[in-house]
Structures are given as structure tokens and as C-alpha cells.
Amino acid sequence: MSATKVKFYQVGSFAVGNRLLPSSARSNQSDAHRADSIVSGHRACQGCGELLGARYVLDTAMRAAEGKLVVVNATGCLEVTTTPFPESAWRVPWLHSLFGNAPAVASGVAAALRAQGRTDVRVLGQAGDGGTVDIGLGCLSGMFERGDDVLFVCYDNEAYMNTGVQRSGATPPAARTATTPVAPGHPGNEFGHGKDVPAIAMAHRIPYVATATVADLRDLEAKVERAMSLHGPRYLHVLVPCPLGWGAPGSQTVRLARLATESGLFPLIEAMDGELVAASPIRRRVPVEEYLRAQGRYAHLFGEPGRPDLVARIQEIADRNIRVYGLEPVS
């Protein structure tokens, strides 16, 4: 998809108006002939960020692959909610094996296709943050370093939501989860824990690494399209708010994803061959408090007496991101 600059304030919101674009540049999701890779009737929660993100990712990948796509799925919400036997919400060839092995299974599919000389079929692996940054990281790293032709997508909702909201290596500091309860001396999840998997992916010098959210779905589509235009291992890390785990109404999913980037806590970046090539500047910067206050998992930071010290530490993290990635709002 070619990038077309559109001044969004014409419509009075940040929503993307397809009617302002030439039909060739309109979103894939607005296309009546989209793949509908995931159909309705699945069992995901109201307002689920992961299913929303997966739908956009897969339909875009399907368009790029001209319908010839094989999908490998790790265990997790996305798997459980879409394939309760004998039903399936998938209209793509889809394989679920285990929690921690989706990248390796995808490598196997890619190897089989190579052996069979099927260069037309593309492979996409997907998992939540647990399946990607924790239990699946070894397999993911192996897939990266071998140069396997797989696009791997992590839908990051920042905890093990499928099992009832336990902390993962992607859980942010101070977030309350079932395994990081707030207690004297413990602010929820500890500061200084967790890992930056997009940076780890970049360290493998793979062709493409990007981050995206379900707030900017045009950006998400564009990044999937760019990833699909390349071969070799590619990694896409998508922030997908979870109403249940984050403690917010389903109506707030897209807003929370937007506040995550506007606060500077979730930078939107692209990297090629290990080098940062783009970082999306923040349009309207907000203090982290606006993002945190909207979520039940941070409720202990506010109220009386609250923890302004911790909010300040989180603000420091956001400030650092903005400084490091050059995310200053465009004037």
C-alpha cells in the first residue's frame, strides 16, 4: 500500500476516513473482497484487542499472499476462543500445536514448503506475549537466526490473560496481576523486570521488525504489508489491550492502545536488518497518568494516598522512550 498523507482533523477525530482516499489506497479491511480470515461467532470477550488485531493482520497478510497463506498459532486466547471443536473461526489453513513452539512449527511449515518447491505459499506464526516473549522465546530466536521465511506476530496484552491474568515477561511495572498482587513493598509488577523483545528481534539483524497497536489500524495494515513484501524472518509486535486483564470496559480498547503510544510508553517503530528506520512521532502527547488512571490494574497508584512516586517513575520510562526514539510531538 502506498502511503498517502491525509490531514485527519478534517473529520474531527483521529478516525481514518476511507472516503478521503482514492479507492486503491483505502484500507484492506474496508474492501468488500477482504479475506475474512477470522469470521464472527468466535468466543473472544467483548472489546478483545487481540482478535481485532489478528483480523487486521491476517486479512492484510492474505491479500499480500494472494490468498496463499498458512497460519501457525500458539496456545492462548486467540487459539482457545477460535477453535472449540467442532467449530472453527478460521478461513485460512491453520495449525495449533503447543504453547511454546509456534515459531518452530512455522519454521517446519516453511521448510516443508521449500522442500516441495512451493514458493507461492507464505507462512505466518502468531502468539500472545506469553507464547512469544517467555515460553516461545528460544524457538523464536532459533527461527530468526536461521533466516526462516516466516512472519511472526506477537499480540501483546501484557500478561497471561488466557489463564486468568498472571504476569509475563511483557507485563509493565506496577501493573497488578494475579501473580503480582499489590502488597507492602510490592507495587504490583516490579520495576526493572521484563524484556524488550522488538529490540531482541533487532539484535538478530532480521529483515524487518515493527511495533504497532490496534489504535492505528491503518498503520498496522501498512506494517503487515511491508513485512509481507519482504522474505526471511520478520517480527511484528502488536499492542492489544485486554479489557479483562487491564480492568477497563471493552469500549476503551482502542482508546487505551492510543494512550499507550501518546504517553510514550509504547513507541511505534520500524527496523530493517537490525537498524531503526522509522519511529512514529506522537501527535498529541499525554502524561502517563491519563493512560494509567483508565485501567483497574493501576488503581492502587491513585486515590488516597496513592503512589505519585511510582507514577513519576513510569513517567520517566515514557520520557526515556520519547528521548531515545525521538517521539517528540510534531508541531
Binding site: 498458512v70 501457525v72 495449525l95 500445536s97 503447543l98 511454546g100 513452539n101 518452530a104 512449527v105 512455522a106 519454521s107 517446519g108 511449515v109 516453511a110 521448510a111 516443508a112 514448503l113 522442500a115 516441495q116 528460544g138 524457538c139 530466536s141 532459533g142 537466526e145 536461521r146
Partner: peptide
């Protein structure tokens, strides 16, 4: 591969893809 777990997982993907 990076481990035996990875080895059997590659087998699973490859076999399911018809190899």
C-alpha cells in the same frame, strides 16, 4: 534447530504441511 523441543516442533509443522 535450537533444541530438541524445536526439532520435534519443526517436525510437526513440516509433517502437517505434507512433508
Amino acid at each position: 534447530v535450537e533444541s530438541e523441543f524445536g526439532a520435534m516442533s519443526v517436525c510437526i509443522g513440516a509433517s502437517a504441511a505434507g512433508a
